[in-house]
């Protein structure tokens, strides 16, 4: 009934293989390209002096108003598409232009370190299966 939890992932993690296929993610990036005929959008983010791309399948969220160069946040399931690699099938695609990306990253890290800390405290008993 309810969709799976879309956990925050950094754009550079989505493609790195740390996300399993079918997993729900939420990530962000600047819209650099939108191909309506293929329902394909590309988000991009810079990290460690490299440009990272996330390909988003936008069929479920169309029509939307694509603003090239704006920051977007996407919620959806990852899938492996041929020729593209990991693609996020978007359930939610929101324009959040003007967002303080540095602060957002800090908040995500803050949340992760909190969960890590807590799981450590609970000892080996907690299963790291749902580690964020």
């Amino acid at each position: 009934m309810l969709p799976a939890t879309a956990v925050f992932h950094f754009p550079w993690e989505v493609n790195s293989g740390s996300v399993q296929e079918g997993e729900s993610v939420r990530t962000f990036g600047r819209l650099v390209c939108y191909q309506p005929e293929e329902s394909k959008a590309t988000l991009s983010a810079q990290y460690a002096s490299k440009e990272h791309h996330v390909v988003v399948h936008t069929l479920f969220v169309e029509p939307f108003n694509p603003i090239i160069g704006a920051q977007y946040i996407v919620l959806g399931e990852t899938e492996n598409a041929e020729g593209v690699g990991v693609m996020v099938r978007a359930r939610v695609l929101n324009c959040v232009d003007g967002v303080n990306i540095a602060l957002l990253q800090k908040a995500i890290n803050e949340q992760r370190s909190f969960f890590r800390e807590r799981e450590c405290k609970q000892g080996g008993a907690a299963q790291p299966a749902d580690a964020i």
Binding site: L104, A107, Q111, F114, R118
Partner: peptide, 23 residues
């Protein structure tokens, strides 16, 4: 919350609440 300011503030605040109260 068009620029996620509230969401970010929330994400920063909740771990503090956990540390100071709930946990």
């Amino acid at each position: 919350d068009p620029m996620m300011a509230l969401q970010i503030a929330w994400m920063m605040e909740v771990p503090q609440l956990y540390r100071q109260c709930y946990d």
